[in-house]
């Protein structure tokens, strides 16, 4: 028997494209956009969310039968907050500069709607292994969008990727800059993150007509 049944594979892969948390379900945009000016920050954010979502979904699905439904939101928040504190402390210990860049947005993973949304919609009603897959899949779908935005914003905005000058040196005028290319500083400003997401949605929905909304 394969490690994953077909149903489980769908759980893992659907959120990557056709049921993407950001572009289709409209969840988790809050903390996604502000930190995508650099690729590195986007990757770290994606990994943090992956950890929190995977673990959180497991914990919630283990406790799903003993949580009284009236106070479930508080219970969920406490579980997420605990996991986020772990992530925050680890970042502070091993990547201090980066945790300064992410600032309050690590804390805002707590209120990231993807996490609460998946808890409500999936982990409260499904077994542990499937919840884990669902969490990982959704976090990966979120991470993919984050990395795409981070890639374009850093490449076009500062001409670097992960800090390496891939387009040449803007001051010494090497590489692309020798033929008059200029960085588009506009890409580093926060509004451009929104417009890049808009364009991603445009591309995705042009390819898959079924996703087009009425209005």
């Amino acid at each position: 028997m394969a490690l994953l049944s077909k149903k489980d594979t769908n759980l893992l892969l659907d959120p990557l494209s056709d049921n993407n948390p950001i572009t289709i379900q409209v969840l988790g945009i809050c903390s996604a956009l502000a930190i995508t000016a650099e690729l590195k920050a986007s990757i770290v954010m994606a990994i943090s969310v992956l950890f929190v979502m995977g673990m959180g979904n497991v914990v919630i699905s283990l406790m799903r039968n003993i949580i009284p439904s009236k106070i479930r939101i508080i219970v969920q928040l406490v579980v997420v907050a605990t996991l986020v504190i772990i992530v925050d402390q680890v970042l502070k210990a091993f990547a201090y500069e980066l945790s300064k860049t992410l600032s309050v947005f690590v804390g805002l993973i707590i209120t990231n709607c993807i996490i609460m949304g998946r808890f409500e919609a999936f982990a409260l009603a499904n077994g542990t292994w499937r919840s884990f897959l669902d969490g990982i899949g959704n976090a990966a779908g979120y991470g993919v969008i984050l990395v795409i935005i981070g890639f374009f914003r850093e490449l076009l905005g500062s001409g670097t990727l992960l800090g390496y000058k891939v387009l040449g040196d803007p001051i010494a005028k090497t590489g692309l800059y020798s033929i008059g290319y200029e960085n588009n500083g506009f890409m580093l400003l926060s509004p451009m993150a929104l417009i890049v997401v808009g364009l991603i949605i445009w591309v995705q929905r042009s390819r898959n007509k079924a996703l087009i909304e009425e209005n």
Binding site: P191, M192, L194, I195, G198, I201, W202, R205, K209, N215
Partner: peptide, 24 residues
Amino acid sequence: NVPAPLRGLGITFIITGLMAIGFM
């Protein structure tokens, strides 16, 4: 008459982006 793939979510993102530029 918004292009069909942009309707709904897409155009809202782009409008928000333009408004954010205005607010800057």
